[in-house]
Design a protein around this nucleic acid. Structure first.
Lengths: 229, 229
DNA sequence: AAGTGGTCTAGACCACAAA
DNA sequence: TTGTGGTCTAGACCACTTG
């Protein structure tokens, strides 16, 4: 710990104490002021370090309650959600896009619930295929709140995926990742065998409390979603 | 923008300018000092706000180069990686664990590559089943660098998954999420049909540049990995 | 009521990368 | 060389939450 005290060096030292159990699981650690005095730095520096460890899941912090080492660590990882075109082009493949359907329709119950929509509001249903090197890559099945994308917004040249990311500010939502067998319809569109194991993502998006869209992305066989920490 | 200027309020205003294209994609935004003057706050407050937007993928920042709105937005999301026991118990189910195999063996080529291991170092291979309410939940197939978990560490009562998270400090690694069909072996262990679509995670873990472990987690049919942003 | 983290300020120096 | 973000400081006030 010689040289200038940076927030990274404080974080490293804190991490060392956590994993050597000098700060044991379940235990409370000294408060920021004491640590700042010990390290010979400003409290803001300690704050930055401990705050960072908290967002990574190594610490739990509460006002007045102090800072604790979690009994059961929950590591947090970050993954990047690129638009599908970028995903394809990032693999060095040629991207193409085909709109299959675009109409107003009453959403299925699961979508209504996921978006917390009352009654049977009709939503805009968009179904589109993303291609990589002219092979099916990903099927997008989306329900959109027409408030956010009226009929003047057309999805025949730009995908709803891309248009929404570019044009709306979302503030929240949920994801689910899972595996699903290809039914007849998926097998035809994605040109794979019926029953093939497909990777899929369900995603809901909100702006404040306003539901924007719910989408299912189903990828052709072989797709891997990768990330690093 | 009345009332006290918080870093969240600065972030909100910046986000508004981004999505109204007042700060257009590809364009450079004013520097921190100018924005601080405009908002009537300290530069540190602007810094905190813009730094936060950068980690979310809304901005790109470079020393001297200034801050820009990315042409192609890449949203970043965080998910929590709990130990499997927590995952099961969090669903209100009874957790159980069964060790199926634990021996030294030469790893397959894919594992050697993923861990960047030279030569044919034997690794510790651990195969274990996690159960929820006495039904198969997840199969763990793991290769461990014996340096980090010698034979004195036994995995018959605590899973390698849990032991490693509790006892080692990792500093990096990679994830891949994908769907895979159940082969004969998976079908038997997870008690599902052959060919069933299974959700799986490949994960590698390092401590600095030292490889610690590579693992494949294959979940029983129906599993969904969920997260919120 | 009081202790703890959350945040803001005003100023300063530094590291990096572009010009 | 120089402009920009990255960070540290010392002090202050505030918000939350626990006792």
């Amino acid at each position: 710990m010689d040289g200038p005290v940076t927030w990274q060096s404080v974080r490293a030292e804190a991490l060392r104490r956590i994993h050597t159990r000098e700060w044991p699981p379940g235990g409370q650690i000294p408060n920021e002021a004491d640590l700042a005095a010990e390290f010979g730095c400003a409290r803001a520096t300690v704050n930055r370090a401990l705050r960072d460890l908290a967002t990574s899941g190594y610490l739990e912090r509460r006002r007045k309650g102090g800072t604790r080492v979690p009994l059961t660590p929950v590591r947090k990882a970050t993954f990047e959600i690129a638009i599908i075109r970028q995903d394809v082009e990032g693999r060095g493949q040629h991207y193409d896009y085909r709109l299959l359907a675009d109409r107003l329709a009453p959403p299925p119950l699961a979508v209504r619930d996921a978006l917390r929509l009352p009654g049977a509001t009709p939503l805009r249903m968009v179904r589109a295929l993303h291609l990589a090197d002219d092979a099916p890559f990903c099927l997008e099945e989306r329900w959109i709140n027409p408030t956010f994308a009226g009929p003047e917004v057309r999805f025949d040249t730009i995908s709803a995926n891309e248009w929404l990311v570019r044009n709306l500010a979302f503030s929240g939502g949920g994801f689910a990742f899972y595996a699903t067998p290809a039914d007849a319809s998926l097998a035809e569109v994605l040109m794979c065998d019926r029953g093939a194991a497909l990777f899929a993502i369900d995603r809901t998006t909100f702006s404040d409390a306003e539901p924007i869209t719910a989408v299912t992305l189903t990828y052709a066989p072989g797709y891997r979603m990768v990330t690093r920490i």
